[in-house]
């Protein structure tokens, strides 16, 4: 994962990520064309596939709408880094396979426009512009199973935990 950073503050809510006026559709292309619209109306024009969103505390708070992480994922954003994530957004991201990383220092120090890469093997966020590296909080083993499967529906098929 490697991309240019778009930076936002604390408490970015899911109404801002995908306003309810677009929730009358489940079409992923249409949802992604309105990604981040009410916090940054120019986002879909200036951001590119592979870019990275970075934010402060409680990213994705508010409504449970999965349309929010779906619009980010299908726009082509490679991952979201934040100081912390709201809990429903967090589980939705895990469940649909949108990579997310919690790293307080990265969220504070990395600037908009920096080029950043993620090394999953070393659990490192690397700011290639400032040459600084940051670690991120590891996922619990149970969650790794869902992430490695590529999402919850894929995990349900494989996992003994969901056998009926």
């Amino acid at each position: 994962m490697k991309g240019i950073i778009w930076k936002y503050g604390d408490n970015v809510n899911t109404d801002e990520i995908i306003p309810a006026r677009y929730l009358n559709t489940t079409d992923l292309k249409e949802l992604s064309s309105h990604c981040m619209e009410d916090i940054d109306p120019d986002f879909v024009r200036k951001a590119k596939k592979g870019d990275i969103i970075i934010a402060g505390e409680n990213f994705g708070c508010g409504s449970s709408r999965e349309h929010a992480p779906l619009s980010i994922k299908h726009f082509g954003i490679s991952c979201v880094i934040a100081k912390s994530f709201a809990r429903i957004f967090f589980r939705n991201a895990i469940n649909i396979g949108l990579p997310i990383f919690e790293s307080e220092n990265a969220a504070i120090e990395i600037n908009e426009g920096d080029e950043v890469s993620i090394d999953l093997d070393l659990s490192k966020i690397i700011d290639m512009t400032t040459k600084k590296e940051y670690s991120f909080s590891p996922f619990p083993d149970e969650m790794k199973g869902i992430i490695e499967a590529g999402g919850l529906m894929e995990y349900v098929v494989r996992s003994k935990h969901f056998k009926t």
Binding site: S64, E66, N92, G151, L152, M153, H161, T164
Partner: peptide, 20 residues
């Protein structure tokens, strides 16, 4: 508790949810 769409899809199929 509030969850996402995929959580309830999994629950439709299995009757279960993952929780911390």
């Amino acid at each position: 508790t509030g969850v996402g769409s995929t959580d309830i899809a999994a629950c439709f199929a299995t009757g279960k949810v993952w929780l911390k």
